[in-house]
Amino acid sequence: MSASPTITPGVTSGPGSDFSDVTGSDAALRRFLHGLPGVDQVGAEARAAALGTRSIKTTAKEFAIDLAIRMVDLTTLEGADTAGKVRALAAKAMLPDPADQTCPSTAAVCVYPDLVAVAKQTLGESGVHVAAVATAFPSGRAALDIKLADTRDAVEAGADEIDMVIDRGAFLSGHYRQVYDEIVAVREACGSAHLKVIFETGELQTYDNVRRASWLAMMAGAHFIKTSTGKVQPAATLPVTLVMLEAVRDFREATGRMVGVKPAGGIRTSKDAIKYLVMVNEVAGPDWLDPDWFRFGASTLLNDLLMQRTKMTTGRYSGPDYFTLD
């Protein structure tokens, strides 16, 4: 059974997905985005915490751990990344547990654009995708043509998925149209590659902003909306992800089109990952319980998932010495 996510190039528009009347100007976008229902911080956080108390046992847990592994975008985004590091990571993505061939592979590896070719070479036709961060990641502070060139470069090198960052400065100063146009342009530069749009929710600060950014990105054609670069604290949190899951759920209600969600950064344990899956299941619905529609941007999470998996199959608790550090 392949864990490969399927890509449907140029996801089709559903009914009611014509937003031209609200995307024409900053003012029109502002009217629309600020007309979305507000998010009460305390209520949203209480709901996320309540979902976190679900107790997942036995078969459900086995299922959840394998699903979580299949949803991992195994990530390295360091200045010190080398071809060797990326090859090792790619090998781990394809075969996370060399001692157990039944262990599924991850969804993707996620690297900087200049290392896409290396990753692609290692992954070949394994079905594990290459995702590249682009658009002057992580700050997004570059001219648009540089961001587009960055994107094209990654796609030409074989990236299946592009993780772009929005211009938070533009967003926070109310230049919604600029953010929107950039996403549209990057999506075009992606060609057949899938586009994930990173908000850097730690910089947007409020859940109202997260909801608005979610709709802005979805209207501009994002395939996925993603919380964070991993370079800013706080990165992904349960309540931020809750608000984004509500947004994709409501967007499908409105347009018929599904958009994926990717929390990234700060998810380190199986217990955390399972809380996210519970939330996906109960908020967006089981349709999103699929690597096509939900991903974890993570690095250390994978080893904890593997340790839990081993515990479930052997009945013993494992330790970090038994799993590779890549």
Binding site: S2, A60, K61, P286, L289
Partner: peptide
């Protein structure tokens, strides 16, 4: 594709 199995299995087991 594994979507079909995923959709049917995530039923929480009893946790008494």
């Amino acid at each position: 594709m594994s979507t079909e199995t995923t959709k049917t299995v995530f039923e929480y087991a009893p946790a008494p």
